[in-house]
Every structure is written in C-alpha cells, then in structure tokens.
Amino acid sequence: MCLSIHCKDVDVLAEDRVVRNAGNVKLEISTFLLAETVKVGDYLVVHAGSAISTLDEEAALETLELINDFLDSKEAN
C-alpha cells in the first residue's frame, strides 16, 4: 500500500500538477504536497496519485560513497 514509484517528470501542467512518465504509462500527478517547485527531469516519489518527495541525487551518491568506505575499511581489517 505504501508502494511508491520513482518516476521522471515529462511535462509540467500547472503549479500543482504534472504528467509523469512511469514506464510506458503517463500519469497526471499532484505535486501539491511538495514544498519545492518541480522541474522537467526531476525524479519524484509518487504514491496514490501524489508526489510525496523528490529523489535527492546527491544524497544517493553520498550513500554509495559510504558503502564503499564501509567495504574498504572492513577489507583493510
């Protein structure tokens, strides 16, 4: 039920609505719950017709770096 899909914006319809491309399905999604303005190319976390968060690419890269550090440090032991 709390399944969310990560999908990419293809068209901004209005201030609080966008069309999102999830695979081959185009969905009209509300962005009302987001504090920030979304732009074409952003990845959104979409649940039950509403964007609830944006994906933070920088945070994703930081997590991957932490994983590599963790694996390296253990290997060194």
Partner: peptide, 18 residues
C-alpha cells in the same frame, strides 16, 4: 536513516500540517 535520498530528517512538514 539508510534512505536519505528520499527521506529528509524533517519529513514532509506540509503534509503533516494538512
């Protein structure tokens, strides 16, 4: 928080206010 690319520390305040 092992999911920081999606979950901010403060969550979604706007949604909670609503």
């Amino acid at each position: 928080n092992a999911y920081p690319r999606v979950v901010p520390e403060e969550g979604n305040k706007k949604a909670r206010d609503i």
